[in-house]
Amino acid sequence: MRSSGQKPITIPAFPFNFPSQITIPKFTIDKFFLLFWFSEPKEKLRDKLRTKMANYYNIDDILTEEEFVPVVFHKAANGVIIDPSSETNSVEQGAKVELPLWLAQELYLRQAVSISVPACFNQKTRLEIQADAACVDLKSRSPFFYEFGCKIAPLVGDKTVEVLLLSAFKIRYKEILTKAYTVAYTAASKFLTLLTKEETNLYEAAQSSMAAFKKWRMGGPRLQRASVLGRKRKPIE
């Protein structure tokens, strides 16, 4: 939020050649922000900025990053209430705790923690997906199963997570589209509880395209009352 008249603040020497000012929508990263950023390799930082800032205001992205992942601390940290088993307000080296993804990935990039594969990608889930991906209840595992998986895969360095996600999505994609066009609404409600957020969007898109097609074929009024206004109000007498 820099007004046009002001000169950008030049930042004195940093360990790496960071541009003095990165403008991203609505605010500017300042020096204080960088205090905790130095230990990161340059390319990683740039990549992270690019992907993170694109989704800065995205509600789903925020919700995805709230999922918990198991981590092991390599460095001790004072004055934080994270480890429930610890008596003091600190985390010891080697402590195993669950952290939300947003915190875990930042700490991981500074080599303070290592992340292991979260429970929703465990062996049991894998076996179930291999058996029949379409019937697995992914929503209860994580409502953002795919997004979460994509975020976690590079962090845990497990190549099989990506394969798992892809194969699960391929099979389920087909199933969802078939059901969206054929199944009556009452029968679909049970099926809908198994879907993740992304799959629900897909399902709704398929249904609305179907409805639009029907409307086009049958004809009818093109212009309608804005749906946000809700049902018809009672006329004012």
């Binding site: 205001y57 995205n58 509600i59 940290a77 004072n78 934080v80 915190l103």
Partner: peptide, 26 residues
């Protein structure tokens, strides 16, 4: 250890800010 403690608090603040911004923006 203090540095990492401070880091966690800093990240929490950034997170809170992001949530508030997203709320108002959306």
């Amino acid at each position: 250890a203090d540095h990492y403690g401070a880091l966690i608090h800093h990240l929490s603040l950034i997170r809170n800010k992001r949530c508030l911004m997203a709320y108002v923006y959306n």
